[in-house]
Design a protein around this nucleic acid. Structure first.
Lengths: 192, 192, 192, 192
DNA sequence: AATGAATGAGGTTTCATTCAT
DNA sequence: GATGAATGAAACCTCATTCAT
């Protein structure tokens, strides 16, 4: 059961995500977010306490969304196909929520950084999903000797984010399939 | 010969770099930068005209350093060895100038982004260096069919940055050689 | 018989008193009061109509208590002894309800002041009690020539409040009897 | 030598004092203060950091003014006349800076209270002046046996403030000399 | 070449009040 | 009789920029 407040929060998340895609998350004003969500400015403060509170909650929400979408692709019988599917979904997510992805990249490696503490466990959640899928690939004997799965998973996540953003920002004319194949080409270093 | 003004600019660069790694470029105030550099606020405006002017000069300065160091590794007879050497140097640069690297990943894909226009040609400079080296690899017949060099170059640059930062922030115990080997493993997807 | 509403009102009074002693009446928020009382914010409005309504009711309630206690000491045969007894009771009241007394000194002379209009007649009620007692002293021929009873009554009330609070806050180690004797020493200026 | 900043602070003090007299110190807006002082709003923050910072500095400034004015009356040959003169000056100060005096009374006995820590040593300064003067009266053999000078000084200060405010707020038609005589009548309990 | 006090547009935050439940 | 999510006017505060020194 979703309460009224939950629905309001949901609407504020969506509004922020939408605005962040075109204007970035920093430089976004509470006025704009509230207007986009169709609520009063005070409602943001009632629900999240502060602008930072909203952003922190949004980070959790957004990473949750991403995790959910990635997990949906981990059940395939062929683990390599699953990995490819996971990459494809990651690209789709970044394309859809570019502003959010951009802040992930901005804040993930900022230390000490305002949201570093929030992001560290969230990053771990995503990396875990990738790690598990890589383990399945390994269990199927399709990973070369010497690949350290935890390291490879972390690298893959960062690479995926960054390549997807680079595609959106600097090479928007390319098709997603094309970019996906580029990333998969990189993956060939890991899989066979 | 370094003039008094040059020394002041250098100090402002260093102060900005130090602060930007934890607070970001947007969150940084001219007051803080001036205080950290030990000069008055007006001095920033005297030397750079505006906050943007300072940031832009810093970005140009930093990217110039990076470009110079990468170029030093592009002359090797064996193009694949050159590529590997270039990766190694990239990792070393990030380790040495982590603050600047964090700025790069934070701002590179931020759109509209205050410094996006400045960074776009600077990114092009770095990507070009990688592109040229990949071309040499291709000319030597060591690149698989179907690899699009411009795309691969852009992807490699982003990946390098992100993997290096991830190493510094989340896996500082790993040796640089180890990380380099991990990236080179990735590179095998491109080269043969 | 106390109804549910009466109990709620009482709890709101107590919560307000507790918070107001350190934060003042103006700095107090309805949210805080409701939280301290363990009721929802809307309940304050249901019972008192507004924040002002709550404060006014509290002021009337508190002054009513004080007036009742002071009046209990005005019937003595010896008017000077009665005056001394009244002073003693005033000190006891401040010691017991320090939070309320702090509110009184904070708001009594605040002009324009949100609650000034409410306090003015309430102050008059207390001053009247003192005035009547002074009149009895005067009727007994124990007041020096030239003492203006209304003026003296107002002065005594203020002095009593302030000396009592000063005792509680800055000299808590003193015994009440000691403080009372100090005030009575002052009173000798008035009586003989 | 007074710097430009010192002059600005001075003007902000005077403006705040002026406005506080008619509108109270709480409820005063930074906009109003800045406008009254003829400076921009930002100037308040440049000089004092926050509205609270301004108020805290004002408390020190105002009490300093009061102390200076009281001290000017402590040199008289006749200590009792000096005490009377001191009382007279105190009344004049309250009449002139009613808003400031009102906040003194509001905050002096508020515990813990936002400005209690600031006010405690300031109160001590004023009480000391009164104490010294009472000591001179005592040295001249004009204080009755049994009067505790520290206690009497504290009581006198509070009484003075409160009687003066009561005069200004509830009995503005009375002449200052009349009120002074009323306080001196109270003092007769102490002096002879 | 450098300073730092002053500015004000534009943001964030507070909080008494309303109202559907 | 009580609730608590929502409101928006009105406050506070930030900070890039200017300019007289």
């Amino acid at each position: 059961m979703t309460s009224r407040a939950d629905r309001t929060k949901q609407r504020l998340f969506e509004a922020t995500l939408k605005l962040a895609s075109s204007r970035g998350l920093v430089g976004l004003t509470v006025d704009e977010i509230a207007a986009e969500a169709g609520v009063a400015k005070g409602t943001v403060y009632y629900n999240f306490g502060s602008k930072d509170g909203l952003i922190e909650a949004l980070l959790r929400y957004g990473v949750g969304q991403l995790a959910g979408r990635l997990r949906a692709h981990t059940g395939k019988p062929d683990p390599v196909a699953g990995l490819e599917s996971l990459v494809d979904e990651g690209l789709a997510f970044v394309a859809e929520y570019r502003g959010f992805s951009q802040i992930l990249v901005s804040e993930m490696w900022r230390t000490p950084g305002q949201w570093h503490e929030t992001l560290t466990p969230l990053r771990e959640e995503i990396v875990s999903i990738v790690k598990d899928q890589l383990q399945r690939v390994s269990d199927a004997g399709r990973l070369p000797e010497g690949v350290l799965i935890p390291t490879a998973a972390a690298g893959l996540f960062g690479t995926l984010l960054v390549v997807a953003l680079d595609w959106q920002v600097f090479q928007p004319q390319r098709a997603r399939a094309e970019v996906r194949d580029g990333v998969l080409l990189l993956l060939r270093g890991f899989t066979r």
